[in-house]
Amino acid sequence: MAMTDRLSAPELPIVHRRRWGAWLLGAVALVVVVTIVHAAIRARIVNLGVFADYIFDPLIVMGAVNALMLGTLALFIATIIGFIAALMRVSGNPILVAISATYVYLFRGTPMLIQLIFWFNAVPIMFPSITISLPFMAEPLVSTPTTSLVTPFLAALAGLSLAEGAYMSEIIRAGILAVDKGQRAAATALGMTQRQVLAQVVIPQAGRIIIPAAGNQYIMLLKSSSLASAIGYLELLRVATDIYSSNFQVVELLAVAAFWYLVMTAFATAIQTVLEKVFPQR
């Protein structure tokens, strides 16, 4: 019978269903992309000669390095601020919770650009001069007008760190809460102090959990460093703007800046990928 024939047939090959729909969609998407790129090239939006002239321009490279430094430093400071704010938020102490929640609300709820310009302008007005004096000494140790201390770099770093710290605190808080209460109870029952529970059990796991989100924030920060151009910090966008305002090669210089932002993003992505490999999720 047919049935027994089929059963006795040796090793029949297995044919899986083709995803024709997906292939068709892919082809359509490719056509659209090629059309747009072709139109852009034909219109000569970017003069590749000018682009090549400026891509390794020392000023541009310095701007890129400054942007990378600003973004990276801000990420570190934001992580520390965010960690403290997150601990306050989960502490259960109503005063600390309120302070932390207010901080997050204010700094996440206002545009970063406003915050940057604010720090650049407001701090010297709030504290016209900074004086560090030791007790029992007539003359202050240090006394300088604040304007000479609040450079564009410091104002940008403070602004980005504080704003980003608010986002990081929420990310870190979610990471801490993702470590289940049971593990904390087990560590406590072993005789660990609350500090040890945090150091040995919560932070190692929360740290791993937040890597993808933190990587995302790092990329955002690297790009947000361009906001510092508004207060005169010589980062990538500011340098590019300064150059095109004298030679009018606007699109080329924006393309040069975009290229370097893409390089930075690739760098951040690489770090994230390596961290995820080195610390696999258990």
Binding site: G182, A186, A189
Partner: peptide
């Protein structure tokens, strides 16, 4: 000096 074992084991996952 007081050991504890939990219903859901609560091993440290990392």
């Amino acid at each position: 000096k007081i050991g504890m074992v939990f219903q859901h084991f609560n091993l440290f996952k990392h």
